[in-house]
Design a binder for these strands. Sequence first.
RNA 1: GGGGUAGUAGCUCAGUUGGUUAGAGCGCCUGCCUGUCACGCAGGAGGCCGCGGGUUCAAGUCCCGUCUAUCCCGCCA
Length: 503
Amino acid sequence: MAVGSLVIHNISETPPFPLDDEKAGRVNEDLRLHYRYLDLRRPGMFHALKLRSKAAKATRDYFDEEGFLEIETPCLFKSTPEGAREFLVPSRLNAGKFYALAQSPQQYKQMLMVAGVERYYQIARCFRDEDLRADRQPEFTQIDIEASFIEREDMYALVEGMLARIWKEVLDVEIRTPFPRLAYREAMDRYGVDKPDTRFGLELVDLSGLFKASAFKVFAGTVSSGGVVKALNAKGLADATQGEMRDLENAAKSLGAKGLAFIRVTPEGEWKSPILKFFSEEERAELKRILGIEPGDLVFFAATEWERACTILGRVRLDSAKLLEKRGRLSIPQGQYNFLWVIEFPLMLFEEEQGRFVAAHHPFTAPVPEDVPLLDTDPKAVRGQHYDCVLNGWEIAGGSIRIHQPDLQKRVFEEILQIPADVVEERFGYMLRAFKYGAPPHGGIAFGFDRLVSLLAGKPMIRDVIAFPKTQKGQDLMSDAPGSVTPRQLRDVHIELAGVEDM
RNA sequence: GGGGUAGUAGCUCAGUUGGUUAGAGCGCCUGCCUGUCACGCAGGAGGCCGCGGGUUCAAGUCCCGUCUAUCCCGCCA
């Protein structure tokens, strides 16, 4: 090779941190976010952007071939009474009025169904003004899907096809369809969460029957007052350190446990436990049989209301798995993708604080037809036509068949959810009207695209698959957003700041 | 709103029971060498120890407050 001429287009200053993947991966993230344009030069970050682009293209190709239309819906929407806290946008042209940034295109896409679109999808930006987490951003992206004349089975097949297509094109991995299905009740019973990671066992076991009449009052009393006794055998974790046990107990307590009872089985097979003295010989034998207890095991108990007991042990199960992985006694292979559907969710949950029912998914979810009569008599027992798609312990999508009958929707708003009629009219009047014009039965689902890509990329944080993510306080460190505005701008939008310093 | 972790050189970190001029690796600068490629050699610059108080003869180190980032709980129909 011979150089004919050399042009220096620009001279670079020394970058503030190394740009090779190995070193930069350990650099403070706030520094990387300040210089995001440099961070994105790293091969690993560029790879993630490319992967994201490929996933989006595979999605579009798939839905295009399936006859779906990609339709954009407004980001500037109106505030809705239930659901996530919204970002408010003051209206200059309408003094004192506000838009809300759409939490999702939910209501628009249902209107598209009424409009006869029949097959809609969109890779949509959504906004929620809630506190952030490693897997949450204030603005995030959904693959949003809705179709008319569709039932749950159609939706499962459609979505499985989409995921198979994405996995094939992005990773060249064949995933097995159809996905297994798990009822919400069973997911909670066996795994203690509604988004189980089924790549490993350590399943929860119900011992309520065994301890119903036990001499151990704590367990027997819980069962007789309607609670449950559940246990989890963390196989091979008997050598958990004091610190690890304390962490597990604290995790359990944070979920409402009073403590975390356990039995530690020494390598010699001796059972050690503060509660062992309360168990009869028969109970010990049954425990050993049911839980398959062997030397080296560590068994945890939770005795309280069903849901809480499940949740507590569900958390202990995940934490135990991590500890076992650390010891090399449990291995979760990279590249294993356990997709599954969680179905048969309750339609309503009773919200103690508000003293009323709230929608488990959202108020547009249709009840299972045969459960409709229960709406009046026993709302808690009504199952919704709701489905979640779960991958390796992550809820990657959720959706439902919707209510399309105006009278039923009105009933759910006013009678079940106890939203005042005038509020219903103000917020949802247009929907109820729309449904009166021959709304087709319809349903849909929405995927968290950022999470999906992070799982494809094998990255633990969605910030790593978003070009310009925000910090936990919702700031963009590169551009320094949000920032202050001039008094003139505030006047334009009819806003006065109260009690805010440093303007 | 609550709890945990972290903050020392451009970056990653060390810094003992509080004790003299705060160190290392990488990077940077200068020179030398060079078919090099995690080059090598010699030399050098670079520090409000996050910020503000306090204790003390003496604080990077102890105490209080605060800021920032992050993880979690609440929250996320």
